[in-house]
Amino acid sequence: MGTVTDYLAAREGENRTALEHVIAVARELAPDVTEGESYGMPALLYRGKGFVAVLEAKAHLGLYPFSGQVLPGLAAELGEFTWSPGALQFTAAHPVPDDLLRRILAERKAQIDARLDGKPR
């Protein structure tokens, strides 16, 4: 098991299900991700770079795309979610809609590809 798998295994109930869903969508969009750590968080790594982490806090769940540009670029679509440039807060009762989740993850993946392939983004 990797760090993400271990982290999720220690969660319970609806929160665990919501976190597992984000990870499942991330794995679908980037099947070659690996598990590791980024910024001290259990994370999926794409091409060795932090792709996404999801964590449970007391009052919410957090999605971390390891970029200060992805979420601001989608600000108009984030609606009633609480967010900062590096994190999006959600709950099991109010998850990130799949279409928005896919856009967040696709944008992060494209950033990593552009950086590693030397193409401006």
Score class of each variant (00 low, 15 high):
Pro42Phe: 11
Ala75Glu: 15
Ala75Val: 10
Ala59Gly: 08
Gly68Tyr: 13
Leu61Thr: 10
Pro42Asn: 06
Gly50His: 04
Glu35Pro: 02
Ala18Asn: 06
Met41Gln: 13
Pro65Leu: 08
Tyr46Val: 07
Arg11Leu: 15
Thr17Ala: 15
Val25Met: 12
Thr17Leu: 13
Val33Cys: 14
Leu45Gln: 00
Glu14Thr: 15
Ala30Leu: 08
Gly40Ala: 03
Ser84Tyr: 09
Arg47Ile: 02
Leu78Thr: 09
Ser67Val: 08
Ser38Thr: 06
Gly48Glu: 10
Gly13Lys: 08
Gly79His: 01
Gly73Asp: 15
Glu35Trp: 05
Val54Cys: 08
Phe51Lys: 01
Gly48Arg: 08
Leu78His: 11
Val25Gln: 09
Arg16Thr: 12
Thr17Cys: 07
Gly50Phe: 01
Arg47Asp: 06
Thr34Phe: 00
Ala43Trp: 00
Ile23Ala: 04
Pro65Asn: 09
Leu71Thr: 12
Leu29Cys: 10
Ser84Ala: 14
Glu28Ser: 15
Arg16Phe: 09
Glu56His: 14
Glu35Phe: 01
Thr34Leu: 05
Gly62Met: 06
Glu56Gln: 13
Lys58Ile: 05
Lys49Leu: 02
Glu80Gln: 15
Ser84Trp: 09
Leu29Val: 09
Arg47Lys: 12
Ser38Glu: 03
Arg16Pro: 06
Gly73Phe: 10
Ala18Leu: 05
Ala10Thr: 15
Gln69Leu: 14
Glu20Gln: 13
Gly79Trp: 01
Phe51Asp: 05
Val52Gly: 02
Glu35Leu: 03
Pro42Arg: 04
Val22Leu: 08
Gly50Arg: 02
His60Ala: 07
Phe81Glu: 07
Leu78Asp: 10
Trp83Gly: 07
Val22Met: 07
Leu55Trp: 07
Pro65Tyr: 04
Trp83His: 13
Glu20Trp: 07
